[in-house]
Design a protein around this nucleic acid. Structure first.
Length: 951
RNA sequence: GCAAGGGUGCCCGAGCGGCCAAAGGGGGAGGACUUAAGAUCCUCUGGUAUAGGCCUUCGAGGGUUCGAAUCCCUUCCCUUGCACCA
């Protein structure tokens, strides 16, 4: 049934063009959510992402804003190329994934061999599912990022940045698969996920006409170099490097050739021929001997290292090993050399002696250079020296400097003097591509970069952040960190779908770069979709978006004006919504690009960051098949139930957990709501017209209480929704309100068959507000009820319920609390006494106790002396001893019960006396004095807590 | 390692100085309704107590305060991100 009403209302909305937003004189609100990359089917995780903005859009529309909520498809990038490729290869895993998890019909599968078909197929499906979810999207602005008109916009964007000098050529090390001939991301790896790339300094030690290029993470230790290590068991080669003859391992040459151009092998080198000879330290000029060492890896760095035994545990232990190895010493004729090699201290760090390497080796009990703990020792010492170490005073030029700074300075000096160069290597091995090949670090040298490292740009972008509201607030720190941390970003690609760089046609624009200011495009997309791309030149966009005259525009002037006006109406963006994992890139890029391209008054105003989705407690993942498709969920539960569950189970920035049991609970809750509406009509006894509720004067406390609760919930829900707290809003507008309505119905159950006009008025009022409160969450159900019970027009277009302060009274709330507490207390006592009870006497607190309570409240803390003093001063009662007794009690009570002024307890209890009698099941007598008080209980009476006597 | 966030009752989760034995949901127990099941509604769900009370609890340990789940310090544990990828 729900399916039918949902479809019905969706088409009614469409026919009425309800969500097609055009500029008018209302205040505008423009919100967007990160557009999807449609390489697969939409699951419930996506459902949450797109329901949040829809709920907010609907809420704001009801508040009277002119809301624009658009949608488009991000189809640029490489993943679909890979998917298409795997489909073509008939990769069974991929075929299964797309058939079983993404629900693609078997006969359609072969068509997915075309990447453009994939994005077309899934974006069409996304569109359909989004309509089934009832999203209030202005579909006239829909586009794909490979549309010719959009490409013109991207060309304009990148050219604008290029002209500002923010796009520049550069080089950058990347993880690279030589077999696939492509950079690889972590997700493309079979092995080595998360492995970092280290920068190594290659120091050039001369030996005759050759150069031993030693790789090090710690160039500052060059001053403590004592010898060179070569591994006698690996292959070394002689390499021509722009005229220099380098000695490195064969494997190192392979790695290096991806980073340095024209590195040709010109001969083989037998390490044994070099061991025992002397090489020159380029920095100090010292002559250092070359020794053999097994710990030197053929594949890491250059395969040549200089030894600095004072700070490098491996060097220290290798030196020890060698000194103890007479066989080696005689084999390489090291007698007379090796004895003189002693560690030269370079760094000091707290907690370590003159030779830190020796200390840590001893502490960890490392016995030789093949010990596994050597790695740990190296890491530990490296870290502490980097963060806290200082260069020892005796070293000229660097003495006393922090290691961190000395390293940087010395490295630059060495490079300037051609004593060193830079190379990159993986921090760990192996790093294996999905294709099975080992990856290398490659320097892409004709790559284009977005200069996010540019300090002025970063500063300006920090201003964008400063001016934004970030939800949740804590994420703002995160953003600040990322904006500062972001370095130049390679923005050109060889493979994928996308737009080409206008000035360098061999490159495609990287897909994150082409989706940073596309919200601007939404504002004008409905015009551009029918225009000739040829007309969308730079001058056109300059005029429309920046009001800048920069050349000939082929579009008629009034048309340009209309488009420009529309852009200016919607921009800036009020809210940007996106997932948590995009904080460090997409959302930051968005700020960068806005700061560079637009003036301050067009900068985004707010960002909301989403959490992830879990399925029965486990992480959702399409590739693992652990997802529920949104279309299936809609089929099983209806869009409204799915929406309601997604919005109620967690705040947007928290992780939600889709649990079937709780979804079913939500479904029942919504059914209850529909039944409640019917019940109201039932109680009324005639047809209900919410458009014309008959007002009556209310006298029963419980009626007033219900309206008090309703208004309280309206207030809370509104405040919560303003800041995207959908869960909190529903907590108030659905769950807590339902609880109160249940309570109210229970309290007036004896009146339900009597067509009592007070009850009818209260229930109709509740229902009328309630339908509107829930309309953003469950729009279909609410439209249906609204129409059924006489609401005017679409509920989607009515006003948001207004909080009416005149109904809110904390004394009313306290009154009901008093009634409930009395029942609770009596029940509890009855349970304990176990005797038959025939009559219950209730004694109310006399006026002086109320005054005493008031005094205690003014004092604010359980300071009996002060309370007594004031009470006696005010002469509230003549029995001082009794005042003291009560004051002591109040002192305790005041921390537990808030004082809100005197309430007329007698009136309240008498108003509810039938209900209380009913609940307790015996006679109740309310006393205002102690004329009948056989057990002297009346003196226990306290404000808000009458005394009870049972007999 | 760096950065951010978090540890609450059987489970999920709210609370962020006193109305807190701690909202709400889920689960469990009992009751009402029903021919029955389901749904719905009511009550209970830390311990203890023959007068509405008392005791213990919010990762652990200290501290501030008349008063702390809430503030401060120390400590342990968890989750996420760390780039050329949407």
């Amino acid at each position: 049934m729900s399916d039918n009403i949902e479809k019905k209302w969706q088409s009614k909305w469409k026919d009425a063009k309800l969500f097609e937003s055009n500029p008018d004189d209302r205040e505008k609100l423009f919100l967007t959510v990160a557009f999807p990359y449609p390489s697969g089917a939409m699951h419930i995780g996506h459902g949450r992402t797109y329901t949040v903005p829809d709920v907010y859009a609907r809420f704001k529309r009801m508040e009277g804003f002119n809301v624009l909520f658009p949608m488009a498809w991000h189809v640029t990038g490489a993943p679909v190329i890979g998917i298409a490729d795997r489909i073509k290869r008939k990769d069974p895993w991929t075929l299964d994934l797309y058939e079983r998890v993404h629900g693609v019909p078997k006969e359609t599968l072969p068509k997915l061999e075309d990447p453009e078909y994939i994005v077309k197929y899934f974006s069409t499906e996304y569109h359909e599912v989004m309509e089934e979810m009832g999203y209030s999207i202005d579909w006239r602005r829909e586009f794909r990022t490979i549309d010719p008109t959009y490409k013109k916009f991207i060309e304009w964007q990148i050219t604008t940045l290029y002209e500002k000098g923010l796009v520049a050529k550069g080089e950058h090390p990347v993880k690279y698969c030589p077999n696939c001939d492509n950079p690889v991301g972590d997700h493309d790896l079979l092995e080595g996920e998360g492995v970092g790339v280290n920068e190594l300094t290659l120091l050039k030690f001369k030996i005759d006409d050759k150069i031993l290029v030693t790789a090090t993470l710690r160039p500052e230790t060059i001053v403590g170099a004592t010898n060179i290590w070569l591994n006698p068991d690996v292959e070394y080669v002689l390499v021509d490097a722009e005229g220099e003859n380098w000695v490195v391992t064969k494997e190192a040459h392979y790695n290096l050739s991806n980073q340095i151009k024209d590195l040709n092998i010109i001969g083989e080198i037998n390490p044994n021929d070099l061991i025992g000879k002397m090489a020159t330290n380029p920095f100090t000029g010292d002559e250092l001997p070359i020794f053999p060492a097994s710990f030197v890896s053929a594949s890491y760095g250059s395969g040549v290292v200089f030894s600095e035994p004072a700070d490098a545990p491996a060097d220290y232990i290798a030196l020890q090993d060698l000194k103890n190895n007479s066989e080696m010493i005689s084999k390489y004729n090291l007698n007379g050399i090796i004895e003189n090699v002693q560690p030269i201290p370079v760094c000091t760090v707290k907690g370590y002696g003159e030779i830190p390497a020796a200390d840590i080796i001893e502490r960890l009990g490392i016995t030789d250079q093949n010990d596994e703990k050597l790695h740990e020792a190296t890491n530990e010492l490296y870290k502490i020296q980097h963060s806290k170490g200082k260069i020892i005073d005796s070293i000229p030029g660097f003495g006393g400097m922090k290691v961190r700074f000395a390293r940087e300075d010395l490295k630059n000096e060495l490079i300037d003097k051609n004593m060193a160069t830079i190379m990159y290597d993986f921090a760990e091995r192996p790093v294996v591509c999905r294709c099975g090949n080992n990856c290398v670090v490659k320097i892409m040298d004709d790559q284009w970069f977005m200069k996010y490292g540019n300090e002025d740009w970063t500063q300006k972008t920090l201003e964008v952040l400063e001016g934004e509201t970030i939800i949740p607030h804590e994420i703002k720190n995160n953003f600040e960190y990322y904006l500062n941390w972001l370095d130049d970003w390679a923005c050109s690609r060889k493979v994928g779908l996308g737009t080409r760089l206008p000035w360098d046609n061999q490159w495609l624009i990287e897909p994150l770069t082409d989706s940073t200011i596309y919200m601007s495009y939404y504002s004008i997309a409905k015009y551009l979709r029918d225009m000739d791309p040829e007309d969308l030149n730079k001058a056109f966009f300059d005029k429309v978006l920046l009001n800048k005259d920069s050349g000939d525009i082929t579009v008629p002037e009034d048309k340009v004006k209309e488009i420009q006006d529309e852009f200016n109406y919607w921009y800036p963006l009020d809210w940007r919504l996106s997932a948590k994992d995009l904080v460090g890139n997409h959302l930051s890029f968005l700020m960068f690009h806005h700061s560079a391209i637009y003036p301050k008054d067009k900068w985004p105003k707010g960002t909301v960051v989403f959490g992830m989705g879990l399925l029965e407690g486990n992480k959702m993942s399409s590739s693992k098949g652990n997802v529920i498709l949104l279309k299936d969920a809609i089929k099983d539960y209806s869009a409204d139930v799915v929406r309601l569950f997604l919005m109620a189970s967690a705040e947007p920035w928290q992780d939600f957990d889709w649990r079937e049991k709780e979804v079913l609970g939500t479904k029942r809750r919504l059914e209850w709501f529909r039944e409640f509406a019917a019940k109201v009509e039932d109680v009324k006894g005639s047809s209900l017209n919410l458009n014309n509720i008959e007002k009556v004067e209310l006298t029963r406390t419980i009626d007033l209480w219900m309206l008090n609760q309703l208004n309280q919930h309206i207030k809370n829900a509104t405040e919560a929704l303003e800041v995207f707290q959908t869960r909190q809003a529903l907590q108030d507008s659905l769950f807590l309100l339902k609880k109160d309505v249940d309570h109210y119905l229970y309290r007036v159950k004896h009146l339900l068959d009597l067509n009592d006009e007070g009850v009818v008025y209260v229930l109709s009022t509740v229902l009328e507000s309630w339908i509107r409160l829930l309309a953003p969450f469950t729009p279909h159900t609410c439209e249906e009820l609204w129409a059924k019970y006489g609401g005017e027009g679409f509920v989607s277009q009515t006003s948001w319920p207004e909080y009416d302060a005149s109904f809110v009274d904390n004394k009313i709330e306290k009154s009901e609390e008093l009634v409930q507490n009395i029942i609770k207390d009596i029940t509890q006592i009855k349970k304990m006494v176990k005797d038959e009870v025939s009559k219950i006497h209730i004694y109310l607190a006399p006026d002086w106790k109320w005054e005493l309570y008031k005094i205690a409240d003014e004092v604010g803390k359980p300071d009996i002396g002060q309370i007594m003093g004031r009470a006696i001063g005010a002469n509230i009662y003549d029995d001082k001893k009794e005042i003291a007794n009560v004051a002591k009690k109040i002192g305790r009570e005041i921390t537990k019960t808030r004082y809100i002024g005197k309430i007329n307890e007698e009136e309240i209890l008498l108003d509810a006396i039938d209900y209380i009698k009913d609940e307790i099941g015996c006679e109740i007598i309310v006393h205002t004095d102690d004329s009948y008080d056989p057990q002297n209980k009346a003196r226990n009476a306290m404000p808000y807590k009458p005394a009870i006597f049972m007999e």
